[in-house]
Amino acid sequence: MTDPAPVFRDRPVSFVRRSGRMSEAQERAWADLRGLYLLEVPRDVAATSVARDSAVDPETVWGRRARLVVEIGSGQGHAIVHAARHAPDTDFLAVEVFRAGLARTMRDADRAGVRNLRLAEANAPEVLEHLLPTASASELWVFFPDPWHKTRHTKRRLVQPAFARVAARALRPGGLLRLATDWEEYALQMRDVLDAAPGFARDFTGEWAQRFDGRVVTAFERKGARAGRAIRDLTYRRTADAAAG
């Protein structure tokens, strides 16, 4: 009798990981800088998985006790490198599955002299559930996640009730979850999910939050604006509701 095939994940992921080639500059950055910036993530079966019971100690990783801001889907790193450069007293973690984007982030961070940034090549919900200690993050950022706008693909969207549960676990009470998207239907889904999520309360009045002034304008935002799509922000505060933890 043969052994059963390994189960990679029990839920769809919000990305399709392609093995595109990196540029020479990205290859050099990956080779030269990953020892400085990249976290060694214990794996389960999948290449971007995070093993259970693999929580890191932020004080050990960053060498100090400070606020921790986590960006989920950091892309090329424009937003988080800018933020880390302008807030040296805060620690930052960029979570991304695409190696070329991580390499570009390392290169730009090194050029800017940023040392308060670390990167995780991993599936974001597993980072929130297994890698970060409970209540360790002061802020979580989700800026312009893939909208998966075709109806048959919406199950791949990141912001679902299961994501809200692990986000609530990772955030400290009073911490903030900041989101932005240029797809109205996804913005409405995000709002519905988080309005109903235990452990979260709106940190805005009216329909949408004010634009977060700590978010630099990236290519995704410019692309949406050029297409005539409105940018919508949401901000939720982690409450002390024990049911979410």
Rank of each mutant, 00 (worst) to 15 (best):
R107W: 05
L131M: 12
F143K: 04
T105L: 11
W141Y: 15
L119F: 01
D108S: 03
S138F: 10
R118K: 14
V127N: 11
D108W: 00
A122D: 05
L131V: 11
V114I: 04
A112W: 01
F143H: 14
N116F: 00
R118T: 02
A109D: 02
A137H: 01
L131T: 10
N116C: 00
A120V: 09
A112F: 03
E129G: 11
E129W: 06
V142R: 05
L140A: 03
S136A: 15
A124F: 07
P133N: 08
R115G: 12
A103P: 04
S136L: 13
A124Q: 07
E129S: 15
A120T: 08
L119P: 00
S138L: 10
T134I: 11
A112R: 08
D108I: 00
T105P: 07
E121M: 13
R104C: 12
G113E: 05
A135F: 08
L128A: 08
L131G: 03
A122C: 09
P145W: 02
R107S: 13
N123K: 03
H130D: 07
A135D: 15
T134A: 15
V114R: 00
G113W: 02
P145N: 10
A109I: 02
E129H: 13
E129A: 15
P125K: 06
A122W: 03
M106G: 11
A103M: 05
A112H: 08
A135E: 15
E139T: 14
P133G: 14
N116R: 00
P133C: 07
A109E: 02
L140G: 01
V127E: 10
L140S: 03
G113F: 01
A103L: 06
A124R: 04
P145R: 03
E139Y: 09
V114P: 00
A103Y: 02
P125C: 09
V127P: 06
L117F: 03
R111T: 02
R107C: 01
R104S: 14
T134L: 14
P145C: 09
P133T: 05
N123A: 12
P133D: 11
V114N: 00
A109W: 01
L117N: 03
L117G: 02
A103G: 06
V142E: 09
T134H: 14
A109M: 03
P125R: 07
P145E: 08
R118F: 06
A124V: 06
P145Q: 09
N123C: 13
V114C: 00
R104K: 14
P133A: 13
W141R: 15
D110H: 15
A103V: 07
F144G: 03
A120N: 08
G113N: 08
P133S: 09
H130S: 12
R118I: 03
D110Y: 11
A135V: 04
A124P: 09
E139G: 10
E129P: 05
L132D: 09
R107V: 00
L140M: 06
E121K: 12
H130A: 13
P145Y: 05
L140F: 04
M106A: 14
R115P: 05
H130E: 13
E129D: 15
P125S: 10
N116Y: 00
G113P: 05
